[in-house]
Design a protein around this nucleic acid. Structure first.
Lengths: 222, 222
DNA sequence: CCTGTAATTTGAACGTGTTCAAAATATCTC
DNA sequence: GAGATATTTTGAACACGTTCAAATTACAGG
Protein backbone atom coordinates (compact mmCIF):
# COMPACT_ATOMS: atom_id res chain seq x y z
CA UNK A 1 0.00 0.00 0.00
CA UNK A 2 2.81 2.39 -0.94
CA UNK A 3 3.95 4.88 1.64
CA UNK A 4 0.45 5.99 2.73
CA UNK A 5 1.38 9.64 2.25
CA UNK A 6 -1.70 10.69 0.28
CA UNK A 7 -2.49 14.15 1.64
CA UNK A 8 -6.13 14.70 0.65
CA UNK A 9 -8.19 12.40 -1.54
CA UNK A 10 -6.52 10.11 -4.05
CA UNK A 11 -8.75 9.67 -7.03
CA UNK A 12 -11.85 11.83 -7.39
CA UNK A 13 -9.88 14.93 -8.19
CA UNK A 14 -12.21 15.85 -11.01
CA UNK A 15 -15.24 15.66 -8.75
CA UNK A 16 -13.54 17.82 -6.12
CA UNK A 17 -12.72 20.49 -8.70
CA UNK A 18 -16.28 20.42 -10.05
CA UNK A 19 -17.71 20.74 -6.57
CA UNK A 20 -15.40 23.60 -5.67
CA UNK A 21 -16.32 25.36 -8.90
CA UNK A 22 -20.08 25.02 -8.47
CA UNK A 23 -19.87 26.13 -4.86
CA UNK A 24 -17.93 29.24 -5.84
CA UNK A 25 -20.20 29.90 -8.81
CA UNK A 26 -23.16 29.85 -6.47
CA UNK A 27 -21.48 31.91 -3.74
CA UNK A 28 -19.82 34.57 -5.84
CA UNK A 29 -21.19 34.23 -9.36
CA UNK A 30 -19.70 32.72 -12.49
CA UNK A 31 -17.51 35.61 -13.63
CA UNK A 32 -16.43 36.52 -10.12
CA UNK A 33 -15.14 33.04 -9.29
CA UNK A 34 -11.64 32.61 -10.69
CA UNK A 35 -9.98 29.43 -11.87
CA UNK A 36 -7.21 30.02 -9.34
CA UNK A 37 -9.79 30.21 -6.56
CA UNK A 38 -11.50 27.07 -7.78
CA UNK A 39 -8.25 25.14 -7.95
CA UNK A 40 -7.25 26.53 -4.57
CA UNK A 41 -10.51 25.44 -2.95
CA UNK A 42 -10.07 22.00 -4.50
CA UNK A 43 -6.50 21.90 -3.15
CA UNK A 44 -4.77 21.54 -6.51
CA UNK A 45 -2.67 23.65 -8.84
CA UNK A 46 -4.40 25.96 -11.28
CA UNK A 47 -3.34 24.01 -14.32
CA UNK A 48 -4.95 20.81 -13.09
CA UNK A 49 -8.40 22.24 -13.52
CA UNK A 50 -7.54 22.43 -17.22
CA UNK A 51 -6.48 18.81 -17.22
CA UNK A 52 -10.00 17.77 -16.23
CA UNK A 53 -11.95 20.55 -17.92
CA UNK A 54 -11.21 22.14 -21.28
CA UNK A 55 -12.19 25.56 -20.02
CA UNK A 56 -14.17 27.43 -17.41
CA UNK A 57 -17.20 27.07 -19.65
CA UNK A 58 -16.66 23.33 -19.83
CA UNK A 59 -17.28 23.17 -16.09
CA UNK A 60 -20.72 24.52 -16.84
CA UNK A 61 -21.25 21.73 -19.35
CA UNK A 62 -20.46 19.24 -16.61
CA UNK A 63 -23.11 21.00 -14.53
CA UNK A 64 -25.55 20.55 -17.42
CA UNK A 65 -24.74 16.85 -17.52
CA UNK A 66 -25.44 16.51 -13.86
CA UNK A 67 -28.69 18.41 -14.31
CA UNK A 68 -29.73 16.04 -17.06
CA UNK A 69 -29.10 13.09 -14.77
CA UNK A 70 -30.95 14.57 -11.84
CA UNK A 71 -33.96 16.12 -13.57
CA UNK A 72 -35.96 12.92 -14.14
CA UNK A 73 -36.19 12.34 -10.41
CA UNK A 74 -37.03 16.01 -9.87
CA UNK A 75 -39.82 15.92 -12.44
CA UNK A 76 -41.26 12.54 -11.50
CA UNK A 77 -43.67 13.84 -8.83
CA UNK A 78 -45.11 16.31 -11.35
CA UNK A 79 -46.17 13.45 -13.58
CA UNK A 80 -48.66 12.39 -10.92
CA UNK A 81 -51.04 15.15 -12.03
CA UNK A 82 -53.65 13.87 -14.45
CA UNK A 83 -54.54 17.15 -16.22
CA UNK A 84 -52.13 18.83 -18.59
CA UNK A 85 -52.37 22.25 -16.94
CA UNK A 86 -51.64 20.97 -13.47
CA UNK A 87 -48.84 18.79 -14.74
CA UNK A 88 -47.12 21.53 -16.70
CA UNK A 89 -47.37 23.86 -13.76
CA UNK A 90 -45.88 21.25 -11.45
CA UNK A 91 -43.08 20.50 -13.92
CA UNK A 92 -42.08 24.12 -14.26
CA UNK A 93 -42.36 24.87 -10.56
CA UNK A 94 -40.19 21.84 -9.87
CA UNK A 95 -37.52 23.29 -12.15
CA UNK A 96 -37.73 26.66 -10.44
CA UNK A 97 -37.10 24.93 -7.15
CA UNK A 98 -34.34 22.69 -8.46
CA UNK A 99 -32.44 25.53 -10.10
CA UNK A 100 -32.96 27.98 -7.25
CA UNK A 101 -29.47 27.58 -5.69
CA UNK A 102 -27.91 28.22 -9.10
CA UNK A 103 -30.18 31.05 -10.17
CA UNK A 104 -27.48 33.67 -9.76
CA UNK A 105 -24.86 31.99 -11.86
CA UNK A 106 -27.34 30.79 -14.45
CA UNK A 107 -27.93 34.48 -15.05
CA UNK A 108 -24.31 34.98 -16.00
CA UNK A 109 -24.60 32.04 -18.35
CA UNK A 110 -27.82 32.87 -20.07
CA UNK A 111 -25.86 35.38 -22.05
CA UNK A 112 -25.01 32.52 -24.36
CA UNK A 113 -28.62 31.40 -24.59
CA UNK A 114 -29.44 33.14 -27.85
CA UNK A 115 -26.33 31.97 -29.67
CA UNK A 116 -26.94 28.47 -31.04
CA UNK A 117 -23.26 28.15 -31.87
CA UNK A 118 -22.25 28.46 -28.23
CA UNK A 119 -22.06 25.07 -26.50
CA UNK A 120 -23.62 26.67 -23.45
CA UNK A 121 -26.78 27.55 -25.36
CA UNK A 122 -29.81 25.31 -24.77
CA UNK A 123 -30.22 25.36 -28.56
CA UNK A 124 -26.70 24.18 -29.33
CA UNK A 125 -25.67 20.88 -30.84
CA UNK A 126 -23.68 20.16 -27.69
CA UNK A 127 -26.72 20.29 -25.47
CA UNK A 128 -28.99 18.43 -27.85
CA UNK A 129 -29.11 15.31 -25.76
CA UNK A 130 -30.14 17.24 -22.67
CA UNK A 131 -32.66 19.21 -24.68
CA UNK A 132 -34.26 16.14 -26.24
CA UNK A 133 -34.46 14.37 -22.91
CA UNK A 134 -36.21 17.46 -21.59
CA UNK A 135 -38.62 17.61 -24.51
CA UNK A 136 -39.46 13.97 -23.89
CA UNK A 137 -40.93 14.97 -20.55
CA UNK A 138 -43.40 17.23 -22.31
CA UNK A 139 -44.14 14.46 -24.79
CA UNK A 140 -44.92 12.21 -21.88
CA UNK A 141 -47.12 14.85 -20.24
CA UNK A 142 -49.12 15.20 -23.46
CA UNK A 143 -49.72 11.50 -23.98
CA UNK A 144 -50.32 10.54 -20.35
CA UNK A 145 -52.92 13.28 -19.90
CA UNK A 146 -54.58 12.14 -23.15
CA UNK A 147 -54.44 15.64 -24.55
CA UNK A 148 -56.20 15.71 -27.90
CA UNK A 149 -54.34 17.63 -30.56
CA UNK A 150 -54.90 18.29 -34.25
CA UNK A 151 -52.92 15.83 -36.36
CA UNK A 152 -50.83 18.58 -37.93
CA UNK A 153 -49.86 20.15 -34.61
CA UNK A 154 -49.26 17.02 -32.60
CA UNK A 155 -45.70 16.35 -33.78
CA UNK A 156 -44.58 19.82 -32.72
CA UNK A 157 -46.45 20.46 -29.50
CA UNK A 158 -43.82 19.07 -27.12
CA UNK A 159 -41.15 21.28 -28.67
CA UNK A 160 -43.45 24.28 -28.43
CA UNK A 161 -44.11 23.62 -24.78
CA UNK A 162 -40.38 23.20 -24.14
CA UNK A 163 -39.72 26.56 -25.79
CA UNK A 164 -42.48 28.14 -23.74
CA UNK A 165 -40.89 26.75 -20.61
CA UNK A 166 -37.44 28.07 -21.63
CA UNK A 167 -38.96 31.52 -21.92
CA UNK A 168 -40.41 31.24 -18.43
CA UNK A 169 -37.09 29.98 -17.09
CA UNK A 170 -35.26 32.90 -18.66
CA UNK A 171 -37.74 35.33 -17.12
CA UNK A 172 -37.37 33.59 -13.77
CA UNK A 173 -33.59 33.84 -13.87
CA UNK A 174 -33.74 37.62 -14.08
CA UNK A 175 -36.81 37.99 -11.89
CA UNK A 176 -35.84 40.22 -8.98
CA UNK A 177 -39.22 40.18 -7.25
CA UNK A 178 -39.40 38.60 -3.80
CA UNK A 179 -39.43 34.82 -4.11
CA UNK A 180 -39.73 35.30 -7.88
CA UNK A 181 -43.43 35.97 -7.43
CA UNK A 182 -43.68 37.65 -10.81
CA UNK A 183 -42.47 34.47 -12.47
CA UNK A 184 -45.08 32.40 -10.71
CA UNK A 185 -47.78 34.88 -11.67
CA UNK A 186 -46.55 34.80 -15.24
CA UNK A 187 -46.57 31.02 -15.20
CA UNK A 188 -50.13 31.07 -13.92
CA UNK A 189 -51.44 33.60 -16.43
CA UNK A 190 -49.56 32.29 -19.44
CA UNK A 191 -50.43 28.67 -18.72
CA UNK A 192 -54.13 29.53 -18.90
CA UNK A 193 -53.53 31.02 -22.33
CA UNK A 194 -51.47 28.08 -23.53
CA UNK A 195 -54.06 25.56 -22.41
CA UNK A 196 -56.84 27.67 -23.88
CA UNK A 197 -55.07 27.88 -27.23
CA UNK A 198 -54.52 24.14 -27.31
CA UNK A 199 -58.25 23.61 -26.74
CA UNK A 200 -59.14 26.15 -29.40
CA UNK A 201 -56.75 24.64 -31.91
CA UNK A 202 -58.96 21.56 -32.18
CA UNK A 203 -61.82 23.53 -33.73
CA UNK A 204 -62.08 23.02 -37.52
CA UNK A 205 -62.46 26.78 -37.72
CA UNK A 206 -58.83 27.07 -36.62
CA UNK A 207 -57.40 25.23 -39.58
CA UNK A 208 -56.06 28.43 -41.24
CA UNK A 209 -54.51 29.62 -37.99
CA UNK A 210 -52.79 26.27 -37.59
CA UNK A 211 -51.47 26.48 -41.11
CA UNK A 212 -49.92 29.86 -40.34
CA UNK A 213 -48.23 28.55 -37.23
CA UNK A 214 -46.97 25.48 -39.07
CA UNK A 215 -45.43 27.68 -41.72
CA UNK A 216 -43.60 29.52 -38.96
CA UNK A 217 -42.36 26.30 -37.42
CA UNK A 218 -41.18 25.05 -40.79
CA UNK A 219 -39.04 28.17 -41.23
CA UNK A 220 -37.67 28.05 -37.70
CA UNK A 221 -36.61 24.43 -38.03
CA UNK A 222 -35.34 24.65 -41.59
CA UNK B 1 0.69 78.40 -34.87
CA UNK B 2 3.12 76.52 -32.61
CA UNK B 3 5.76 74.37 -34.25
CA UNK B 4 3.46 72.58 -36.72
CA UNK B 5 4.84 69.20 -35.70
CA UNK B 6 1.51 67.39 -35.28
CA UNK B 7 2.17 63.89 -36.58
CA UNK B 8 -1.32 62.50 -37.23
CA UNK B 9 -4.54 64.30 -36.34
CA UNK B 10 -4.65 66.72 -33.45
CA UNK B 11 -8.04 66.61 -31.87
CA UNK B 12 -10.50 63.89 -32.90
CA UNK B 13 -8.60 61.13 -31.10
CA UNK B 14 -11.78 59.72 -29.67
CA UNK B 15 -13.36 59.45 -33.09
CA UNK B 16 -10.28 57.73 -34.49
CA UNK B 17 -10.31 55.16 -31.71
CA UNK B 18 -14.04 54.54 -32.19
CA UNK B 19 -13.57 54.11 -35.91
CA UNK B 20 -10.64 51.73 -35.47
CA UNK B 21 -12.64 49.72 -32.96
CA UNK B 22 -15.75 49.39 -35.12
CA UNK B 23 -13.67 48.47 -38.15
CA UNK B 24 -11.91 45.74 -36.21
CA UNK B 25 -15.15 44.55 -34.62
CA UNK B 26 -16.61 44.16 -38.08
CA UNK B 27 -13.51 42.53 -39.58
CA UNK B 28 -12.60 40.14 -36.82
CA UNK B 29 -15.49 40.09 -34.36
CA UNK B 30 -15.92 41.73 -30.99
CA UNK B 31 -14.04 39.25 -28.80
CA UNK B 32 -11.30 38.69 -31.36
CA UNK B 33 -10.44 42.36 -31.66
CA UNK B 34 -8.15 43.37 -28.80
CA UNK B 35 -7.84 46.75 -27.17
CA UNK B 36 -4.14 46.76 -28.07
CA UNK B 37 -5.04 46.22 -31.71
CA UNK B 38 -7.65 48.94 -31.60
CA UNK B 39 -5.26 51.42 -30.03
CA UNK B 40 -2.57 50.36 -32.48
CA UNK B 41 -4.82 50.89 -35.49
CA UNK B 42 -5.77 54.29 -34.10
CA UNK B 43 -2.07 55.10 -33.64
CA UNK B 44 -2.21 55.63 -29.88
CA UNK B 45 -1.13 53.84 -26.73
CA UNK B 46 -3.37 51.19 -25.27
CA UNK B 47 -4.19 53.18 -22.18
CA UNK B 48 -5.56 56.07 -24.18
CA UNK B 49 -8.52 54.03 -25.35
CA UNK B 50 -9.47 53.90 -21.67
CA UNK B 51 -9.17 57.65 -21.36
CA UNK B 52 -11.95 58.06 -23.92
CA UNK B 53 -13.96 54.92 -23.20
CA UNK B 54 -14.60 53.35 -19.81
CA UNK B 55 -14.26 49.86 -21.22
CA UNK B 56 -14.42 47.76 -24.34
CA UNK B 57 -18.16 47.47 -23.79
CA UNK B 58 -18.44 51.24 -23.58
CA UNK B 59 -17.25 51.42 -27.18
CA UNK B 60 -20.34 49.42 -28.06
CA UNK B 61 -22.48 51.97 -26.25
CA UNK B 62 -20.96 54.65 -28.43
CA UNK B 63 -21.96 52.51 -31.41
CA UNK B 64 -25.50 52.38 -30.03
CA UNK B 65 -25.54 56.15 -29.77
CA UNK B 66 -24.50 56.49 -33.36
CA UNK B 67 -27.17 54.01 -34.37
CA UNK B 68 -29.80 56.01 -32.55
CA UNK B 69 -28.75 59.12 -34.43
CA UNK B 70 -28.70 57.45 -37.81
CA UNK B 71 -31.80 55.27 -37.62
CA UNK B 72 -34.42 57.99 -38.21
CA UNK B 73 -32.97 58.69 -41.66
CA UNK B 74 -32.73 54.96 -42.35
CA UNK B 75 -36.38 54.39 -41.41
CA UNK B 76 -37.81 57.48 -43.08
CA UNK B 77 -38.37 55.87 -46.51
CA UNK B 78 -40.32 53.06 -44.87
CA UNK B 79 -42.84 55.55 -43.55
CA UNK B 80 -43.93 56.22 -47.13
CA UNK B 81 -45.97 53.02 -47.15
CA UNK B 82 -49.62 53.62 -46.33
CA UNK B 83 -50.58 50.17 -45.03
CA UNK B 84 -49.31 48.87 -41.72
CA UNK B 85 -48.07 45.56 -43.12
CA UNK B 86 -46.05 47.13 -45.89
CA UNK B 87 -44.66 49.73 -43.55
CA UNK B 88 -43.60 47.29 -40.85
CA UNK B 89 -41.96 45.09 -43.44
CA UNK B 90 -40.09 48.05 -44.89
CA UNK B 91 -39.01 49.21 -41.44
CA UNK B 92 -37.61 45.84 -40.47
CA UNK B 93 -35.97 45.22 -43.82
CA UNK B 94 -34.35 48.66 -43.56
CA UNK B 95 -32.85 47.63 -40.22
CA UNK B 96 -31.58 44.37 -41.65
CA UNK B 97 -29.81 46.34 -44.32
CA UNK B 98 -28.51 49.00 -41.97
CA UNK B 99 -27.09 46.50 -39.50
CA UNK B 100 -25.73 44.14 -42.13
CA UNK B 101 -22.07 45.25 -41.86
CA UNK B 102 -22.22 44.77 -38.10
CA UNK B 103 -24.16 41.52 -38.10
CA UNK B 104 -21.16 39.48 -37.04
CA UNK B 105 -20.19 41.52 -34.04
CA UNK B 106 -23.79 42.13 -32.98
CA UNK B 107 -23.88 38.37 -32.54
CA UNK B 108 -21.12 38.52 -29.97
CA UNK B 109 -23.03 41.26 -28.19
CA UNK B 110 -26.48 39.74 -28.17
CA UNK B 111 -25.22 37.55 -25.37
CA UNK B 112 -26.13 40.44 -23.08
CA UNK B 113 -29.56 40.81 -24.66
CA UNK B 114 -31.47 38.78 -22.09
CA UNK B 115 -29.87 40.44 -19.08
CA UNK B 116 -31.71 43.69 -18.34
CA UNK B 117 -29.00 44.69 -15.87
CA UNK B 118 -26.35 44.75 -18.59
CA UNK B 119 -26.00 48.20 -20.18
CA UNK B 120 -25.59 46.46 -23.51
CA UNK B 121 -29.05 44.90 -23.32
CA UNK B 122 -31.81 46.55 -25.38
CA UNK B 123 -33.94 46.23 -22.24
CA UNK B 124 -31.51 48.04 -19.96
CA UNK B 125 -31.97 51.39 -18.30
CA UNK B 126 -28.91 52.66 -20.17
CA UNK B 127 -30.45 52.02 -23.57
CA UNK B 128 -33.89 53.30 -22.62
CA UNK B 129 -33.60 56.44 -24.68
CA UNK B 130 -32.67 54.48 -27.80
CA UNK B 131 -35.41 51.96 -27.11
CA UNK B 132 -38.09 54.58 -26.64
CA UNK B 133 -37.05 56.42 -29.77
CA UNK B 134 -37.34 53.14 -31.60
CA UNK B 135 -40.77 52.37 -30.16
CA UNK B 136 -41.90 55.82 -31.29
CA UNK B 137 -41.37 54.73 -34.88
CA UNK B 138 -43.89 51.94 -34.37
CA UNK B 139 -46.23 54.37 -32.69
CA UNK B 140 -45.96 56.57 -35.74
CA UNK B 141 -46.56 53.64 -38.09
CA UNK B 142 -49.74 52.75 -36.20
CA UNK B 143 -51.22 56.25 -36.22
CA UNK B 144 -50.20 57.25 -39.73
CA UNK B 145 -51.69 54.08 -41.22
CA UNK B 146 -54.87 54.72 -39.22
CA UNK B 147 -54.75 51.24 -37.73
CA UNK B 148 -57.84 50.66 -35.64
CA UNK B 149 -57.15 49.01 -32.31
CA UNK B 150 -59.24 48.08 -29.29
CA UNK B 151 -59.01 50.77 -26.63
CA UNK B 152 -57.45 48.41 -24.13
CA UNK B 153 -54.72 47.21 -26.51
CA UNK B 154 -53.86 50.51 -28.15
CA UNK B 155 -51.48 51.78 -25.43
CA UNK B 156 -49.35 48.67 -25.68
CA UNK B 157 -49.30 47.83 -29.36
CA UNK B 158 -46.17 49.83 -30.27
CA UNK B 159 -44.20 48.10 -27.52
CA UNK B 160 -45.48 44.72 -28.67
CA UNK B 161 -44.44 45.42 -32.24
CA UNK B 162 -41.02 46.59 -31.05
CA UNK B 163 -40.60 43.36 -29.12
CA UNK B 164 -41.68 41.36 -32.14
CA UNK B 165 -39.10 43.16 -34.21
CA UNK B 166 -36.38 42.52 -31.62
CA UNK B 167 -37.15 38.83 -31.91
CA UNK B 168 -36.80 38.98 -35.68
CA UNK B 169 -33.55 40.91 -35.35
CA UNK B 170 -32.16 38.33 -32.96
CA UNK B 171 -33.10 35.55 -35.34
CA UNK B 172 -31.53 37.50 -38.20
CA UNK B 173 -28.28 37.97 -36.31
CA UNK B 174 -27.80 34.23 -36.01
CA UNK B 175 -29.31 33.37 -39.38
CA UNK B 176 -26.65 31.52 -41.37
CA UNK B 177 -28.74 30.99 -44.49
CA UNK B 178 -27.56 32.67 -47.70
CA UNK B 179 -28.48 36.35 -47.64
CA UNK B 180 -30.41 35.63 -44.43
CA UNK B 181 -33.27 34.31 -46.53
CA UNK B 182 -34.76 32.43 -43.61
CA UNK B 183 -35.11 35.71 -41.73
CA UNK B 184 -36.92 37.31 -44.62
CA UNK B 185 -39.22 34.32 -44.94
CA UNK B 186 -39.87 34.46 -41.22
CA UNK B 187 -40.59 38.17 -41.46
CA UNK B 188 -43.04 37.49 -44.26
CA UNK B 189 -44.86 34.62 -42.56
CA UNK B 190 -44.93 36.14 -39.08
CA UNK B 191 -46.02 39.55 -40.30
CA UNK B 192 -49.13 37.99 -41.85
CA UNK B 193 -49.95 36.47 -38.50
CA UNK B 194 -49.31 39.69 -36.61
CA UNK B 195 -51.50 41.72 -38.95
CA UNK B 196 -54.17 39.03 -38.87
CA UNK B 197 -54.19 39.00 -35.08
CA UNK B 198 -54.49 42.78 -34.95
CA UNK B 199 -57.53 42.58 -37.25
CA UNK B 200 -59.07 39.82 -35.19
CA UNK B 201 -58.49 41.61 -31.93
CA UNK B 202 -61.12 44.19 -32.91
CA UNK B 203 -63.95 41.64 -32.79
CA UNK B 204 -66.07 41.89 -29.63
CA UNK B 205 -65.74 38.12 -29.44
CA UNK B 206 -62.04 38.60 -28.67
CA UNK B 207 -62.57 40.52 -25.48
CA UNK B 208 -61.61 37.59 -23.22
CA UNK B 209 -58.50 36.87 -25.29
CA UNK B 210 -57.48 40.51 -24.97
CA UNK B 211 -57.98 40.38 -21.23
CA UNK B 212 -55.63 37.40 -21.01
CA UNK B 213 -52.97 39.18 -23.02
CA UNK B 214 -53.36 42.33 -20.95
CA UNK B 215 -52.87 40.34 -17.78
CA UNK B 216 -49.63 39.04 -19.25
CA UNK B 217 -48.45 42.51 -20.17
CA UNK B 218 -49.28 43.77 -16.71
CA UNK B 219 -47.06 41.13 -15.16
CA UNK B 220 -44.23 41.68 -17.61
CA UNK B 221 -44.18 45.42 -16.99
CA UNK B 222 -44.73 45.25 -13.26
C1' DC C 1 8.51 84.16 -23.15
C1' DC C 2 7.89 81.91 -18.55
C1' DT C 3 5.51 79.62 -15.21
C1' DG C 4 1.72 76.91 -13.38
C1' DT C 5 -2.30 74.31 -14.10
C1' DA C 6 -5.21 71.29 -16.70
C1' DA C 7 -5.83 68.04 -20.40
C1' DT C 8 -3.86 64.39 -22.86
C1' DT C 9 -0.85 60.40 -23.63
C1' DT C 10 2.21 56.78 -22.40
C1' DG C 11 3.75 52.16 -21.01
C1' DA C 12 4.44 49.24 -17.26
C1' DA C 13 1.78 46.50 -14.14
C1' DC C 14 -2.21 43.70 -12.26
C1' DG C 15 -5.48 39.81 -12.27
C1' DT C 16 -7.88 37.15 -15.51
C1' DG C 17 -8.53 32.53 -18.52
C1' DT C 18 -5.55 29.50 -20.70
C1' DT C 19 -1.32 26.77 -22.36
C1' DC C 20 2.57 23.96 -21.79
C1' DA C 21 7.02 21.88 -20.74
C1' DA C 22 8.62 19.64 -17.07
C1' DA C 23 8.15 17.10 -12.66
C1' DA C 24 5.94 13.72 -9.88
C1' DT C 25 3.35 9.72 -9.47
C1' DA C 26 0.95 5.57 -10.85
C1' DT C 27 0.74 1.51 -13.74
C1' DC C 28 2.42 -1.98 -16.60
C1' DT C 29 5.96 -5.50 -18.35
C1' DC C 30 9.49 -8.54 -17.83
C1' DG D 1 11.67 -5.58 -7.82
C1' DA D 2 13.53 -2.71 -12.02
C1' DG D 3 12.80 -0.33 -15.86
C1' DA D 4 9.69 1.63 -19.14
C1' DT D 5 5.50 3.81 -20.10
C1' DA D 6 1.34 6.31 -19.13
C1' DT D 7 -1.19 9.27 -16.11
C1' DT D 8 -1.50 13.04 -13.12
C1' DT D 9 0.15 17.38 -11.23
C1' DT D 10 2.74 21.54 -11.07
C1' DG D 11 3.89 26.38 -11.73
C1' DA D 12 5.71 29.56 -14.86
C1' DA D 13 4.35 31.91 -18.95
C1' DC D 14 1.20 34.20 -22.44
C1' DA D 15 -2.36 37.44 -24.19
C1' DC D 16 -6.25 39.51 -22.68
C1' DG D 17 -9.05 43.73 -20.45
C1' DT D 18 -8.04 47.14 -17.30
C1' DT D 19 -5.65 50.54 -14.04
C1' DC D 20 -2.52 54.03 -12.86
C1' DA D 21 1.49 56.86 -11.80
C1' DA D 22 4.27 59.39 -14.47
C1' DA D 23 5.49 61.91 -18.74
C1' DT D 24 4.10 64.93 -22.22
C1' DT D 25 1.48 68.48 -24.33
C1' DA D 26 -1.82 72.44 -24.40
C1' DC D 27 -3.07 76.53 -22.55
C1' DA D 28 -3.79 80.03 -19.16
C1' DG D 29 -2.17 84.58 -16.75
C1' DG D 30 1.89 87.37 -15.59
Amino acid sequence: MTVARKQVAPKDTRARILEAALTLFRERGFHEATMREIAGKAGVATGLAYYYFDSKNAIVLAFYDRTRDELPAVLEPAHAHRTLGARLEAMILAKFEYFLPNRRFLGALSGHAADPSSPLSPFSETSRETREADIAHFERALTETHTSLPRDMAPHMAKILWLYQMGLLLFWIYDRSAGQKRSRDLLDASLKIVIGLMRLSNLPLMKPARRSVLTLIEILER
